[in-house]
Write a protein that binds this DNA or RNA. Structure first.
Lengths: 235, 235
DNA sequence: GTCTATATACGGATAGAC
DNA sequence: GTCTATCCGTATATAGAC
């Protein structure tokens, strides 16, 4: 799979996504006309991610936010009870979407080697498609409520475990060399996160998302190859 | 080298470090008694890093800060002109120290393979010794003045280049396999950064700094081994 | 549903006493 | 050198008109 194919496969219409958010937060949202809610939620989420990724969620004032969404401060507060509630909403919805897409693509695969490569690619492609959200959820940990902080940590450990489980299975079947699976998984995650955290660096080098995925797959596979014919040699 | 040895080798006394900071910022600092300056600068830097790493520099109020340093707000402002100046001071001093130690340890080494391993270890050990500063400089990019942001980016590219140069030299001498050196360097950096960015995860798994360094060295070396006898096998 | 106007609190920074 | 008291801008959030 490459990025273009991945994009097609997750082609959930934006409208569909925001309808789900509306239904999930029906109690918080005072506005009742569904069409209006969907249009405005879309503006609200996009604006919040845009401004936060430029200057941080905490540094985003409601006045900035009001300007970017083209909604008055009064109107905004009929979609969420407080700025902190908005933060929670963004995190919750993103996490849900990420888990759903990850599982849909990875779980069906049987062969551990194919599965490891797929998991790496899907994670990179997903973080490309939802880059603003991934970056946001990485950088805003400090501003989260204790409950949301826990959820974010749990999410991180959950995806670590996806990789660890694939490695364990592959080692048992003799396809991967014996390595500490948790440690490997954590290293893989570090490499994946670099794609959306250090975006400016990859853009500067004009690395495409597919080229980056190829690189990480090679890098990771080299460490898990079963036998080891070569060695680095000291002079 | 292990972490304990490294610690001894950089045993610059704290007092010596703060004396340098005082001399470098003599114009900004209104207080003239050197002993007082050193004592208070030490409090100021420690407190700023501590609070910022908990809740972010921008969320740290001068009142919080005053309490943590046990200095009044009035007193604080005789050590820096504004909160933003304080940010700049912290970044400048840390960068200077980091570059000095990195070069001192890495430049003398000749053999590329030994040098690559040393560069990895030194970087990890250094980020362990100065963990609060590394984390700060990573997370506070958004709050930096344009000039400091540029310096931070330059610092990142500078250390990338250290690794790239080692790889280029090693490839030319036939000790490393042919890989894109810039790409490799960037991947190595991602793995190194994980040590101080995801500290909670490594602490939870009780990974020691030496164990982490061993792991990264193995991981990176596997990718740069000259010949490749083994393969992962798909079932 | 959305707006404008405003209540209220808290931010950084400084003046002047000691 | 350090402190307390205070200035003044800006923050979030809401009330009430339309």
């Amino acid at each position: 799979m490459n990025y273009q194919e991945f994009q097609k496969s997750i082609n959930v219409s934006k409208e569909q996504l925001y309808r789900e958010i509306y239904l999930a937060n029906r109690d918080q949202i005072q506005v009742k006309k569904e069409e209006t809610v969907i249009r405005n939620l879309s503006r609200i989420f996009d604006a919040a991610l845009k401004i936060s990724n430029e200057k941080g969620f905490q540094a985003m004032s409601m006045r900035d936010f009001s300007k970017e969404t083209a909604l008055s401060m009064g109107a905004l507060y009929s979609y969420f009870a407080s700025k902190d509630e908005l933060l929670d909403m963004i995190l919750r919805q993103g996490r849900q979407l990420v888990v759903r897409i990850l599982n849909a693509h990875i779980q069906p695969i049987e062969d551990p080697v194919t599965k490891l490569e797929a998991a790496i690619r899907i994670h990179i492609y997903l973080s490309e498609a939802l880059q603003p959200w991934f970056y946001f959820s990485f950088m805003e940990v400090k501003n989260m409520s204790p409950a949301e902080k826990e959820n974010t940590v749990a999410g991180e450990l959950y995806t670590d475990q996806i990789f660890a489980d694939i490695l364990i299975e592959g080692q048992a079947a003799g396809h991967f060399a014996a390595r500490d699976p948790q440690q490997s998984a954590s290293g893989i995650k570090a490499l994946l996160q670099d794609w959306y955290v250090k975006r400016w660096k990859h853009a500067r080098r004009q690395t495409s998302v597919d080229a980056y995925a190829d690189f990480i797959v090679d890098f990771v596979m080299a460490y898990h190859r079963v036998s080891d014919g070569g060695k680095v040699q000291r002079s």
